[in-house]
Amino acid sequence: MGIEEKLPAGILLTSVEKVSNWARKSSFWGATFGLACCAIEMMAAGGPHYDLGRWGMEVFRASPRQADLMIVAGRVSQKMAPVVRQIYDQMPEPRSVISMGVCASSGGMFNNYAIVQGVDHIVPVDIYLPGCPPRPEMLIDAILKMREKVMAAPLGPNGKKMLEARKAEGKVPVVAPGAMPSSYRADKVRRAEWTQAVKEGREEQLRIENWMKLQPHLREGGK
């Protein structure tokens, strides 16, 4: 990635790594890869109601040369598969892929001749996001998890060695499925709530409850 990769290991590299990762995660620029229905939910996530601009992502670069996050949103047909690969190849490192929706993750409900059964047959995927289509909030959750993953990404040749070592110890994925979301980490009260819930083994429950409290039609008690 440039001069940062060549720095010798040590405190300097760690700080550079933190800064570099923070800069990368705070300004993901998505490559427009909306294919089908999920594309509309992605556009809605970029819209004013579920604003992706809160995380610096309101801009979707049409040119893959200027993008670092490809959100494959929608079903990938056999005819489209080479195009997906070409766009992925045209993106410069460091790049990540979120496969949005069940069709991109696994072929979805279309288990047939025309659809590639999962875009991971074509490009390496970092985050899989199920849903048909996933709500904009789910997409935002996936993007936040992507940010955490990027934040923990190692830099430099020693970083790669460190990653191998972690893999050997079995400590991957870097962001474990039940990890504390960044929205909770920022707030002291919620962080305490979360840690308590983890002790009791009900952290997913806590997330769902908190989300439900914010939904008007569920606040009135369902139906």
């Binding site: 056999q78 005819k79 696994s106 072929g107 288990n111 047939n112 001749y113 025309a114 059964q117």
Partner: peptide, 22 residues
């Protein structure tokens, strides 16, 4: 609708649906 070099005519009844086991 299919790629230009596709072989077979998909919506015929003797063309398999082509899915994979899940």
């Amino acid at each position: 609708l299919m790629p230009d070099d596709w072989e077979g005519h998909p919506q015929r009844k003797d063309y398999p649906l082509g899915g994979v086991p899940v």
